[in-house]
């Protein structure tokens, strides 16, 4: 899943390691979320949003693909 975690994280001047420590996960998890290779649970999404001071839709919202059936 595509998301804007990387942009939001850089905006608040946090490294992956710092963000991970604030939330209580490993740096690898943050890295995988940013790459879109891991789907975080809603709880983790919210934790990320609280930490970078953004709303859920600002970071995780993706438009529905038009060519989908």
């Amino acid at each position: 899943m595509e998301n804007k975690v990387r942009i939001a994280r850089i905006q608040v001047n946090l490294t992956q390691q710092q963000l991970a420590e604030k939330i209580g996960v490993t740096r690898q998890t943050i890295s995988l979320i940013e790459k879109g290779k891991y789907n975080p649970t809603l709880k983790l999404c919210l934790d990320i949003c609280y930490t970078v001071n953004k709303r859920l839709d600002e970071i995780f919202w993706v438009e529905k693909e038009r060519d989908e059936k």
Binding site: G24, V25, Q28, T29, Y38, K43
Partner: peptide
């Protein structure tokens, strides 16, 4: 050993 809290690792 620390308890694993990372949901991905769990």
């Amino acid at each position: 050993m620390k308890k694993i809290r990372d949901e991905r690792l769990i």
